[in-house]
Amino acid sequence: MARTGPLRLALFGAAALLLTGACMSDDAKNDPLPRLSRARATQWAEEHTARMAEAAGVELDRASAEAAFEDCVGRKDEVAHDGRYSLFYTVYAPVPRERHTDVARRLRADFEKEGFRITGYREYQDDRLTALVDAKDDETRFSLATGSVSPTRYLFSVRTPCMIPPGVTQQPQ
C-alpha cells in the first residue's frame, strides 16, 4: 500500500531514512539511531495528535498534554546516558461515553488511510470494556495508542522508538 498521507510526510521529513532497525536486536544495537531534537519530536507529536483529534471529530484538552522523554533501555538492561531518548506524548480529549465507539471507528479509518497497521481495536462495550484503537508504523516503529480512560475522557498517545538529538555523539553499547 502506498503511504503518502500528509501525516507521514510531516513525520518523516526529518528522520525517516534513519528510523529502521535501531534497537531491534543485539546485532543492531550500535546502528545509528534516528536523529531528532526533543523539541522537534514534541512538535511533531503535537501536530500528529491534533490531526488525530481532527479526524476523530474531538477537541483536545491541550492543558493535559505531556511529553515524557524516557531512557532507552536495551534488551539486556543496558541504559546509555548519551542523550538518547524515546518520546511518550499524551493528550486527553473530553469525549462523552456515547461517542467513544464513533471516535474509535473514525480513528481506525484514519490510521488505515495513512497506511498504519491496526494492532488493536475494540468498540465501547461498557465502562470496563472500553474503546481502543492502536496502530503501528512498521517502517518507522512509531506507535499510536488511543482509547477511553473514563466515561468522559479519551487518550491520544504517540510513542517513538529510541532517537538521539542531532549533534550528540552516540555512545557504543
Binding site: T119, K136, R141, F142, S143
Partner: peptide, 8 residues
C-alpha cells in the same frame, strides 16, 4: 521496547 504496543 520503545514505541511498542506491548508496553502500552
Amino acid at each position: 521496547d520503545d514505541g511498542s504496543d506491548s508496553l502500552d
